[in-house]
Design a protein around this nucleic acid. Structure first.
Lengths: 217, 217
DNA sequence: GAGTGTATAAAACGACCGTTTTAAATAGAG
DNA sequence: CTCTATTTAAAACGGTCGTTTTATACACTC
């Protein structure tokens, strides 16, 4: 019993590390099990399939991140209502900071791991993750969209939709290609950007991009 | 002889279509050859390997796009110098429009194909495409960077570096996930965005994001 | 302590991949 | 027309993948 939980845990801990490093499809079950020092068949025994393992890995992070994001959004909305002034785009975007940081409780490098997993999940298994997220946490996503819309009443919904996905793309690309980009940046400018700083660099960029005036009505 | 060129062409035309649709690694040589009605071995005969085929596909577009971009950049620089006023971020970004449109001469849907290929190339074969691009068209890339820097003298090179890659990520994501996103947008807003319009929606977004003031010096 | 259900171990299965080999067909030159 | 070199066709090779099967070891209940 004690040993059983350990094997399942060893699998999931090793899997999310390798998934975040090389992507889902590029990581074989043989890599995971040999790295974790467990038997190959134990993955199918404990999780049923590779697909189910991927979902388990993602769910572990989403179940922490999404409720925390919901709390942040609600708090911002209430705070704004009490103060009688509306929030700005950057305020809504900043709501992802604390929930992301909260992922350290699932793993010390949880925030980085989660963002990288998100990047691969979107670029490799298109549709699946989005469907999963919307069915389980659709309310949070919709609230996020609505608050960004409130912060930008002059923008039409369609433009906002695309700009939010542009922002998502910028973040995912920065995470997935983050290591290579950091090395290039370090060799070009001698300036070293840590993985955690990437988000700090990203937020002003997307806040300005989203809030830009809309040339087409 | 006439048949020979036809087979090689059938391969490359079919390959770039399937590559753009499903990615490089997700597309097998068997898919390509059966769709093109040619023999499996002919790919290795005409191109040497799958990797060489990928490079041939990419090179066909890069050899048209990159020189055209270089010309646009040079023209903008000269025009600005004559007028005595500096160009803006959006002006530099707009330089990609005409070269992209020029890809219609290699294929009617060339612009869309090329952007999707770029997206997959960056997300699947990290490093390879960047290395290829820099060794063959490094001058153009550097000129582009330099002109964006000129348009934003107040931003440090490191911040600019990251913002340009954020922009690249936004574009690539929009292209790779473009089909799915368009369907969602159509069902949510009833508004239909064509593939070509995506770039028009993107440019104001990245122009504002790049030109945003830098919170950290 | 025997029995039962769960967890681990090792091997094999079937499918697909890129590539190579072998053989047949085809085209152009002498 | 014949010979030769190039192109196509078909089959096989070696490898990796996710999954399944078979058999063994373990832990806990009665």
């Amino acid at each position: 019993m004690a040993k059983a939980l350990r094997t399942k845990d060893k699998i999931i801990v090793t899997a999310e590390m390798l998934f975040a490093e090389h992507g889902f499809e590029q990581t074989s079950l043989r890599q995971i099990t040999s790295e974790a020092n467990v038997n190959l068949a134990s993955v199918n025994y404990h999780f049923g399939s590779k697909k189910a393992l991927i979902q388990a890995v993602m769910a572990r992070y989403q179940s922490v991140f999404m409720p925390a994001l919901a709390a942040q959004l609600q708090e911002l909305a209430q705070r704004s209502e009490r103060a009688g002034v509306s929030y700005r785009t950057a305020d809504v975007l900043a709501c992802v900071n604390a929930p992301l940081f909260a992922l350290k409780q699932v793993r010390v490098d949880g925030p980085v791991i989660y963002l990288r997993l998100l990047g691969y999940a979107y670029s490799e298994i298109q549709g699946h993750l989005r469907r999963f997220t919307m069915t389980h946490y659709g309310d949070v996503v919709h609230q996020f969209f609505a608050m960004i819309q409130t912060a930008n009443p002059n923008l039409c919904a369609n433009t906002l939709f695309w700009r939010l996905h542009f922002s998502l793309g910028a973040m995912l690309f920065a995470q997935v290609s983050g290591q290579a980009l950091r090395e290039i940046a370090a060799s070009d400018f001698g300036e070293d950007t840590h993985a955690e700083e990437t988000l700090a660099k990203l937020l002003p960029f997307v806040a300005a991009g989203i809030a830009a005036s809309d040339p087409q009505p």
